[in-house]
Amino acid sequence: MQKDEIRAQVNEVFIEEFELNLADLKPEAQIFQELGLDSLDIVDLIVALQKKFGVNFRSDERIREIRTLDDLYHFIGRIGQEK
């Protein structure tokens, strides 16, 4: 899957599940501080992303290193390559 496609699909999850505006979804946006997700929202995000991409990464330790949207795009990209 191309980078742009991954980015578009991840953004779609944020727009559909969290009603965020596309304008707020900048790659450098901090998921906790700027987008306002908390630890419980992250669980909802993971569930929605798993459904969207058809993968299971809930127990992947690398999730803990994700801070920004860009980190998330890269993480999803790597998961896709490893599949």
Binding site: E17, F18, G36, L37, L40, D44
Partner: peptide, 8 residues
């Protein structure tokens, strides 16, 4: 509403 939308 989702919890995220609700809190906001």
């Amino acid at each position: 509403w989702s919890p995220f939308v609700f809190k906001n």
